[in-house]
Design a protein around this nucleic acid. Structure first.
Lengths: 171, 171
DNA sequence: ATCGTTGCAAACGTTTTGCATAAGG
DNA sequence: CCTTATGCAAAACGTTTGCAACGAT
């Protein structure tokens, strides 16, 4: 099952960054002696053309098909996604047995609601949460690198919708 | 990669429950018109014989092999794990691309540290965290069903160990 | 006798790999 | 020219399914 593709970028403020994702990726390639290829160039561009959560299949669906210009094979997509994560451009997490990616570079720390009705992921930010996490970690002498919090439940849209249907069901 | 099998039960207080997991599972079977089979009986017993996180492979490894008494096939293990989740005995989450299970029934709500060095999962409880979660959800009019928080980083044991090695490396 | 359950084998969906060819530096 | 990157095909991985035989009620 795929996660929703709806754009999520409107709610959160961008973090200040000195480079574009493309520039940062080029620097990463340079620092590792890797090559600037047409496929990598095209994929950064595609991945950062809109801000949304996506999995490998959703990305591939939005790319040119075999035979068309700029075709990138499935293995190369997977290999490149891994590089994006290494380069700090993307962050990966797992949902319903598949890897989901989201923008990391230039994007603030945030967490997610996952609606079990419409399977929509939405984002929220909480400074209090980051502080609490750090405090808990300190108590346990755990050195935090990152965290992943997903709150499962029913989003507002779906709970409204459900109430309507319930009223109708009574007729 | 498998998650660690070290016992995690010592830190958290058990929640009061009126039935054993076995009783609760039998009730679940009855309520759905499902049957009490030898395989199911044996698997509840195995799964609740020690408190730890485990994945399907780790469970299967601790079970009798084909040809031995009480052998349970791999598909049946998977089917039964799903029933345990349905019955509220286990909770499932995903880590490094595989499903990990933990005791749910009679066990308090908690969250996890995941050490990226030793790949050990450890548990912690925070009432403040639950409250904050509920408050955030209320603000977003999101109806919480559950949540999953994993804090990634380096556990105390590993950061001590790492320092030692670093000192030696300087020699 | 009925109908849920099991084990087997095979399929599944996602991701990874080996390898020959292509192409960046 | 050297080495990394790519595409293809196939494998690998964890998990699920169809089905015939089995067994609980």
């Amino acid at each position: 099952m795929a996660v929703s593709s709806e754009d999520q970028s409107l709610e959160l403020e961008a973090v200040e960054v000195s480079q574009t994702p493309i520039e940062r990726f080029e620097e990463y390639l340079l620092s590792r002696g890797l090559r600037k290829t047409e496929q990598r160039r095209f994929l950064v561009e595609q991945v950062f053309s809109r801000h949304q959560h996506f999995d490998a299949d959703q990305l591939i669906d939005q790319l040119p098909r075999k035979g068309e210009d700029n075709y990138v094979s499935r293995p190369t997509v997977y290999r490149t996604l891994k590089e994006f994560v290494d380069a700090g451009l993307l962050r990966r997490f797992e949902l319903n047995g598949r890897s989901v990616y989201e923008h990391d570079y230039g994007y603030p720390e945030h967490d997610h609601f996952y609606c079990v009705k419409c399977h929509e992921l939405s984002e929220f930010q909480s400074e209090a949460l980051s502080q609490l996490r750090d405090e808990i970690a300190r108590q346990h002498r755990f050195r935090v690198r990152s965290h992943r919090l997903i709150i499962h439940g029913v989003c507002h849209a779906c709970s409204s919708r459900k109430h309507q249907r319930k009223r109708q069901d009574l007729v």
